[in-house]
Structures are given as C-alpha cells and as structure tokens.
C-alpha cells in the first residue's frame, strides 16, 4: 500500500453519462481545491452512451479519495476508480514534425527514430510527421533527440490507461439500471476494502 501522505501520480477513471456540462462539473471539483490536472482524456467507453474520463493528478491518496467521492457524488457519474501507475497500463501518443530534407540527408536521424519506435505518419517534401506512443519519459526523450535536427512542432495526447485488475463495466452498468440494485452491487466495495478502491 502506498503512503497516504506522500504525493504521487494517481490515475482516476470516471464512468459517466454523456451529458453536456459534466466535464465542467468534474473539472471544478479539482480547480475549487486548487489542484492541477496533469492529463485529462474523455471519450466514449466500450458501452454505448457511457463516457470514460481518464484524469491524472499528482496528489496524496487522502486527497485523491476525497476527490473521487466528490466526483462520484455528481448525479450523472456512475462510477469512479483511482489507481497508482503500478495498477494500470498506460500510454500517451505523441506527434513530431521534422524537416524532411534533414532526415533524408542524415542517416543517424533515421536510426534514432527507429530506436525510439517512431513511425512516419505523413511524408511531404517539406516536412515529415512521426508518431510514437509510450510513457511520458519516452516521448520526452524523443523531443530532446529530435531538437538538434530542427524539430518544427510537437504535440502529445492525454494519457489513456487500462486498469490491470478491472473486469470492465458492462455487468456493473446492468446493475445500475435496476431500480433496486442487489446487495452485491459494487456500491459497497469501498466499505470492504476501505483503502484500496473507492466506490460508493
């Protein structure tokens, strides 16, 4: 178990209804407490009409627990989980725009890109766009590597992540849809293992 008073990266996964304004309702839970969101990704989940948020913050577990409860309290939020980096598989995607002539001229650049697992997405006369996915340090390294070769532009996506022990959300949603959810409804997961998983 991680130290509850030590700050570290936490990955918060939120399952929600697809509702206008919900992004703001969730975001203000962080901003009200002056907590910076390091990364935020929101997109439709594997279930139709259900959205999944991935939020990354650097905080203590105590704070993260409280934030998760405040998020789960929102009417249109179905479920919230938080995990440390060890509990998840995560990736960020990055795009790099580099002048084509330099790459064509210098064999070393091609080798470097290969070493970093970068893939050409677009090749034009004037520039080439490479793509790579990985952890923050990996995509960061490639920026440093490409900088001497005239890196024109760089962009990185928010983090997406899969929880290692998760069984997905399909079965849970069915329980939520019942007017009187059963005793096993995941509602009380938190009470069973108070420090492990947050849920209501």
């Amino acid at each position: 178990m991680s130290d509850p008073i030590e700050k570290q990266e936490y990955n918060i996964t939120v399952y929600t209804e697809n509702q206008i304004g919900l992004l703001s309702r969730i975001a203000i839970i962080f901003t009200r407490r002056k907590i910076n969101i390091d990364s935020l990704n929101t997109s439709p989940s594997e279930i139709e009409s259900i959205h999944r948020f991935n939020i990354v913050i650097n905080e203590t577990e105590d704070v993260v627990t409280k934030l998760c409860r405040q998020i789960e309290k929102q009417v249109e939020v179905l479920k919230v989980y938080y995990n440390t980096n060890e509990d998840v598989i995560w990736q960020e995607m990055a795009l790099y725009k580099v002048p084509t002539d330099i790459i064509a001229d210098q064999v070393s650049v091609e080798r470097l890109l290969r070493e970093h697992g970068a893939r050409a997405v677009v090749i034009r006369k004037d520039y080439t766009v490479f793509e790579t996915t990985g952890h923050r340090e990996e995509t960061d390294t490639l920026i440093k590597v490409l900088q001497p070769y005239g890196l024109i532009e760089f962009v990185r996506s928010a983090r997406v992540m899969i929880i290692k022990h998760s069984k997905g959300f399909n079965s849970k949603l069915r329980e939520f849809e019942q007017a009187e959810p059963g005793e096993e409804v995941i509602e009380n997961e938190f009470l069973n293992s108070r420090h492990k998983v947050f849920t209501m």
């Binding site: 179905l78 939520f176 007017a179 009380n188 009470l191």
Partner: peptide, 17 residues
C-alpha cells in the same frame, strides 16, 4: 421519477457496521 441509473441517493445499509 424514482430512479436514475447514475444516481445513488443513499448507500445500502450494512448490518456489519
């Protein structure tokens, strides 16, 4: 209205507590 799937107005009471 008496049910919204994403809204749990009250948690289930647990006898053990």
């Amino acid at each position: 209205c008496n049910h919204i799937r994403s809204y749990r107005p009250k948690p289930i009471v647990r006898q053990q507590y």
